[in-house]
Amino acid sequence: MLQPEIIEFLASTTPQILAKNIPVTENRESKRHDIQQKAEAGEEKAVSPFEFRPQRLRFAVEDEYFEDGDINRHMYLQNIVTSFVDDKQPPTISEFRCHIAGCKQLFDTLEGYEHHYNALHRNVCSNCKRSFPSNRLLEIHILEWHDSLFQIMAEKQCMYECLVEGCGLKFKTSKERKDHLIRTHSYPADFRFDKSKKIGRTTEKKTQQKKDAHMEVSATVLQQESSESMDFSLTPEPVETEPMQAANLKPRYSYKVPSSICFGQGSVRGFRGRRKK
């Protein structure tokens, strides 16, 4: 049924013929209509019933015209078993350890190592060796923790940037940001990547924002107590304990966090980094 010249035409690599270069004869349609209308007028006849005009048709997403194609699409989505591409039969190699100092996790596949490295060693703060899940969170951390100018500026203007990308709002304190995250973005009250930062602040900048600090640390201490035994065994790094000086402070926020909720079963330490003291 297919014409060979069409196949050939399609296979040509460059557009041989552009639509605008095709010889076009003048559209005499209007002239024809004029003549007819004159004729009709002469005969005192009704207007021609013919109304065909070339028109581009538009169909909306939910139009019935699209039903069959949509069904085909969803059969594809539902029928098909896909696979983790990177997971297919990873080439086995002899076991090796992560070369990052203090890590020493064992690997027997390159994929596993790649994932481990990307997840834990890619976005690491060079100052305090904390690791972050994304570059953005790392940048916010560096700014808020290690930029001496930041604290000075923060006293004058809103400097704590919302963690949600694209939000762009800034706040006076990290607590205000937290409230904003919970209220506006329906974040959980115990969002870890926010919390860990504030914990860090308590240890480093105890003088400032003391009130805030107390709350954070006390919450963490609670979790650590409940989860340490379960979780810490696996993590390969030397376990260090958070400075406990805040533990004796009034746990103002702790009531909000039931002891059953363990921010990652003690893995709080996870993104707080491995500081060797």
Partner: peptide, 14 residues
């Protein structure tokens, strides 16, 4: 909570 804990934990494989 357990799953979310593992999700945010410091062990890449977990």
């Amino acid at each position: 909570h357990m799953l979310i804990g593992q999700l945010s934990a410091h062990n890449a494989q977990c």
